[in-house]
């Protein structure tokens, strides 16, 4: 089964399976020219804040995610896997693309 992930910045929602990272699901929205980064938790481009919902994570670089970030669910979308419906806001370099109407196909 898939979960529904809502981007609070734009109100757009997308489906994401538990084995998919939030970034993989976001990529399917087909935002144009989106710099999705390294997909490995290393570069910090895809930083988001999970506002509500359950999730699991894999290791991500401390250069970009501090203990305080972890405590406040400010994480890298490429390393977060949904375990329920989620809502999030985009806070990394990704934000300019996700939240810019011109990038929506």
């Amino acid at each position: 089964m898939t979960h529904t992930v809502r981007i609070e910045d734009t109100g757009v929602s997308y489906a994401c399976a538990p084995r998919e990272s939030l970034l993989e699901g976001l990529n399917r929205l087909g935002l144009r020219g989106i710099p999705t980064g390294c997909h490995g938790g290393g570069c910090g481009v895809c930083k988001i804040e999970v506002l509500a919902g359950e999730f699991q994570t894999r290791a991500m670089s401390r250069d970009h995610v501090s203990d305080d970030d972890v405590a406040h669910h400010r994480l890298l979308a490429c390393r977060v896997y949904p375990a329920s419906d989620l809502s999030l806001k985009v806070i990394g370099k990704l934000q300019r693309k996700v939240c810019n109407p011109a990038s929506v196909r």
């Binding site: 980064g37 390294c38 997909h39 490995g40 938790g41 290393g42 290791a59 670089s61």
Partner: peptide, 8 residues
């Protein structure tokens, strides 16, 4: 391309 930790 990127390795599994995001090292290009």
């Amino acid at each position: 391309a990127w390795d599994p930790s995001g090292n290009r």
